[in-house]
């Protein structure tokens, strides 16, 4: 078993108030992972408005990277045997239906090389 970070991205930074159905769908998705005992960290949602980016030479700008069109909205950590299985889990997340995408990244142990 190894841990994977799922990073949720969408072009829309605001978290539009989800409908009860959407909320339930999200919760069902996460509980389905937890029911398989594969949820390591339910993660958090990230604010799009209370955000700064810090750069060298005392440059601090508002918001996340403005150069790119997508913003990180949140993350979840799962524990699966293979990356394919983690991808499988990600594919069922409702964010894909709303134009978002999910990046799946293995979390390295201190000894591992990337």
């Amino acid at each position: 078993m190894r841990e994977f970070l799922l990073i949720f991205r969408n072009s829309d930074t605001s978290h539009p108030a989800p409908s009860p159905e959407q909320l339930q769908e999200r919760l069902n998705w996460m509980a389905g992972i937890a029911a398989q005992n594969k949820l390591v960290d339910k993660g958090n949602r990230l604010s799009g408005s209370i955000a700064k980016t810090v750069r060298p030479d005392d440059v601090v700008t508002d918001g996340p990277y403005t150069e790119i069109k997508e913003f990180i909205l949140g993350y979840v950590i799962v524990k699966t045997a293979t990356i394919e299985e983690a991808v499988d889990i990600a594919q069922k997340n409702p964010i894909l239906k709303m134009g978002g995408n999910i990046e799946v990244r293995a979390i390295l142990t201190p000894e591992e090389k990337g």
Partner: peptide
């Protein structure tokens, strides 16, 4: 049952146990 499912969803996320997983299902 929708209420019960929501609660089981939260419960299994909070603390996994095989029985909770089965009841949730």
């Amino acid at each position: 049952w929708e209420h019960i499912l929501q609660l089981y969803n939260q419960l299994v996320i909070l603390e996994y146990s095989p029985i909770t997983a089965l009841n949730r299902t």
